[in-house]
Design a protein around this nucleic acid. Structure first.
Length: 112
DNA sequence: GTAATGACCTTGG
DNA sequence: ACCAAGGCCATTA
């Protein structure tokens, strides 16, 4: 069971390692963990991480399109955008601007 | 134990 | 270039 829990823990670790003002995608995290097909599971881990302590910067994690798909799962649908705005990240129509510029790839930055 | 769902990604038409 | 469908993994009902 510890192995299964590890996957979630790995996701939490990576999300916590995301620098301020940077964003990443579920697929990138999944790929970093070695399971590029488990991108959905990464999002699921976030759902379980919601309300956890310390609060994970889930607002820094978005889909491949840079769209705030999980904003609906936050305390408030606007909380995610608010947090991103505090990170000096421009969000327009629930989509991060300069996403490719703010994209933080763990496989490259952390380089495994 | 089987079926359905989900904060996704990739590929086909 | 745009729209649609399928697939993969884990959790929950």
């Amino acid at each position: 069971m510890a192995v299964d829990k590890d996957f979630f823990d790995q996701v939490y670790q990576v999300v916590r390692l995301i620098p301020k003002g940077r964003v990443t995608s579920y697929g990138a995290i999944a790929k970093y963990l070695g399971t590029p097909k488990s991108s959905r599971v990464v999002g699921y881990a976030m759902n379980a991480a919601h309300g956890k302590t310390p609060k994970l910067p889930a607002h820094r994690v978005v889909n491949r399109n840079g769209m705030l798909t999980g904003k609906n799962h936050f305390e408030t649908p606007t909380k995610m955008q608010e947090l991103l705005a505090k990170e000096y990240i421009e969000v327009k129509n629930d989509t991060i601007i300069n996403f490719h510029k703010l994209f933080w790839d763990p496989t490259v930055e952390l380089e495994i």
